[in-house]
Design a protein around this nucleic acid. Structure first.
Lengths: 254, 254
DNA sequence: CGTCCCCTTGAATGAAGTCAATACGCGTGG
DNA sequence: CCACGCGTATTGACTTCATTCAAGGGGACG
């Protein structure tokens, strides 16, 4: 892990939050500054926070993909959440004594680190930002519930289709997806650990989706051949992502 | 649903929170008063909040069991969380425009209703309470992650054993469980909807656990024949429930 | 050029689901 | 008080979805 203060990264967090509320130029400047004041870089597969750690600051994914995961005794691993560019890890971790799960980098990752003090100052002075961050936290909880539904009720095909839809919407909000494709910089094994499937079955399901001309993977990008049919296959209802500003989903990328 | 102001119920919420922090007698009095100021009763199977509703207040389960659930188009249902006596539903729902899931009563339920204003006043004047409520919310999120792990990685047997361990600890915290048993006032179908299994398979798994002399169900109570072996079978690690005060789990019931 | 991942596919196995029939309780009303 | 009916629990037989095992192929990188 390398300390750093450099970098001009597109602000995915701001892009995401604006799908919920309009932020003033000042809000945006402050949020950008606070999240970049202290940044850290991680290599792919490196752990960013480990189960049992005592968290000391709030992390923001400035670039790259990370995940929350838990290991079982015998080595099985479940990825319980993807942390995408602009995602925020736990506003209130300070309350708990120790982490109940780990956070690991899936790709090279740039993390912004916000101290408790900086966060509290910003929260106090800029209620619109705080409100938007609350929205973000509640959406994260909602996503966690939807994953529970997926794992509990959907079969491999529906589950994978649903995840792709979710990633598509979330990455578009972050300003990181194309009109009908998005970067998918993870292995099939990692995908399988998120979907609760074996990697072999992920591979087969992917083949099936390709043969139905729904999606395909081309140099670490997921290409969606027919968004409508993909969403139908997953019975995807984006309400749980709470994109609440009128027309926010259609906004031009910023 | 019947309006009511009556009732002298054991305060499960306070009992739960004290496993995290000590509350002063004044804290306890206030919390008790605020959550009982307005109560509502629901029949078993009645919906308390419905997907799409705009939430207007914070609910506290004063008595009975409820659940969060989501329906799929074709009628499949996933219970994503159990709401047990003393459980609290979403401190910050006001931020979101609409509910992304429903809350339904599993048994007859008494709900306390806390208005936004009452909550904010209490939060402002009693920071220890607020802190404890944050702990509660973060534990709820942690439980949701653990369910994701269960559904993704554990087989039927482990998953059920794990759920029983979780319920046992949570109900003990609420002061509602015995030394080696707890009330389980739900049907096998409802259990199956939480575990992501068919009700037939739940029945078989239950039989298997009975034949191994781990647990049995006797008039709506789950009797644990050997707590240690049950926890082993589930590889149960209670850390994710963040019972953080020293010895809190061993406290006499209040 | 070899090694290490990762992806891909087939064949055999296994866990959980579906279908269907029966049994059990419990409350209601005759 | 008993009979009926309905929801729930139980069990067997069969099916299906997903896993495991195993082997081969491809690309990146030292």
């Amino acid at each position: 892990m390398i300390q750093s203060t450099s970098g001009y990264l597109a602000d995915h967090l701001i892009s995401r939050l604006q799908h919920f509320t309009r932020l003033s130029p000042e809000d945006r400047a402050i949020l950008g500054a606070v999240t970049r004041e202290r940044t850290r870089r991680f290599a792919a597969r490196e752990d960013i926070v480990r189960e049992g750690d005592r968290p000391q600051s709030i992390n923001v994914v400035l670039d790259g993909w990370a995940c929350r995961y838990k290991h079982l005794d015998d080595g099985r691993r479940q990825i319980v959440a993807f942390l995408l560019p602009g995602d925020l890890c736990d506003l209130n971790v300070f309350v708990l004594r120790q982490m109940d799960h780990s956070i690991g980098a899936l790709t090279p990752v740039v993390m912004g680190q916000v101290t408790r003090e900086a966060f509290e100052r910003m929260a106090e002075e800029h209620s619109r930002i705080l409100h938007a961050l609350w929205w973000d936290a509640l959406v994260a909880a909602s996503i966690q519930r939807e994953w529970t539904v997926s794992l509990g009720q959907r079969n491999a095909f529906e589950r994978m289709a649903h995840l792709f839809c979710e990633l598509f919407v979330r990455l578009r909000m972050a300003g990181v997806a194309g009109q009908e494709s998005f970067p998918l910089p993870i292995t099939q094994l990692e995908l399988s650990e998120a979907l609760g499937l074996s990697s072999v079955h992920v591979n087969r399901t992917l083949r099936e989706m390709r043969s139905e001309d729904l999606v395909s993977i081309q140099n670490r990008e997921l290409v969606i051949h027919d968004v409508r049919r993909l969403m139908d296959a997953a019975s995807f209802n984006p309400d749980y992502l709470h994109v609440e500003r009128e027309g926010a989903l259609l906004d031009a990328e910023e």
